[in-house]
Write a protein that binds this DNA or RNA. Structure first.
Lengths: 167, 167
DNA sequence: TTAAACTTTCAAAATTTATTGAAACTTTAA
DNA sequence: TTAAAGTTTCAATAAATTTTGAAAGTTTAA
């Protein structure tokens, strides 16, 4: 496997993983491309490398910026924008975990809270609904707390502690 | 919010969460329905409750069985199949984590291994590709180990230990 | 100002994914 | 056997999502 093959494999693997986890393929591939690039890239560069349209590139780069994963760079004397991604994997994981928690997990926790606190009318069906959604709520809440904690620290102490525990 | 509203909200919330995380909406909704049901349900029951077709129900129930989340029950003297889901949230989380790791994470770790072990031809681009994919590989590998460990134990000792660490 | 260099927007088209429903298949009871 | 009661399969259709590309918008330099 030479450089070009390895690069293509990385970009396509990342794109597929994204798709499996509900992330737009182009978005994941742009991030992958920037992640292994030695310098910031322009819209043209991205279009050329991934063979995608200008509109697609523009929209997905904006989304990556919204997520806090990609930053825009302006170079003196140049009009076009240069994009680069967070290069530190730990920091990248933190950002993604934080954003997915905020956008997708927290609203569900809130909904489970609402559902599990309906009035118990005495029926077995209602009792079961309350019991099960409460259990789910507690689990989601705990998992989210661990994630948030793992994510809030610049230092990687939690991961280190966990690894110590599990050997 | 009465029982029916709460039930509908739960089913639709679970369906949407599934969609966001790359899981078929019907599949997530069937699981949600079984999760709050006081007894095992038939194909007819599911079709009726979720207003989906027989084919859709059949295919998604089979997938849930493949995942190990739903089990089929046969009742003496009856031909039709009754389905129920794992009711313990911890166990459910374990099964899902284990399956997604096996199906989606491990193949990516393997790909990252292959990519990051290409021959260093001396170019900065190749060096960067190797460095970055190696870092990603290490992170994915560590995260996956923690997950597997958390998931392999019937007891919930790891979660408890982590919660102790983070207060 | 003007126009060149760029970015954004968004309706239409293309693609992907999910769903249907009816035919084929399987199992069991009579 | 046969037929009733069920399940599965899969081609066709529908729905959702992604992508395109051209027009509109923005910014800057002259």
């Amino acid at each position: 496997m030479d450089y070009q093959e390895a690069k293509n494999k990385f970009i396509s693997t990342w794109g597929s993983l994204g798709t499996l986890w509900g992330i737009n393929k182009a978005m994941a591939q742009i991030q992958a491309l920037l992640f292994i690039s030695t310098e910031a890239l322009t819209t043209e560069d991205i279009m050329e490398e991934l063979q995608i349209s200008r509109g697609n590139t523009s929209m997905n780069v904006r989304q990556l910026i919204d997520w806090g994963i990609v930053t825009k760079e302006l170079r003196p004397g140049e009009r076009k924008e240069y994009f680069s991604t967070e290069k530190d994997v730990q920091e990248l994981a933190r950002i993604i975990a934080k954003e997915r928690s905020r956008r997708e997990i927290k609203p569900v926790i809130k909904a489970l809270e609402d559902i599990s606190s309906i009035k118990d009318d005495g029926s077995t069906a209602t009792k079961e609904l309350i019991k099960q959604t409460k259990a789910l709520h507690d689990l989601a809440h705990t998992a989210n707390s661990i994630l948030e904690k793992a994510v809030s620290q610049k230092q990687n102490w939690l991961t280190k502690s966990i690894l110590k525990i599990i050997q």
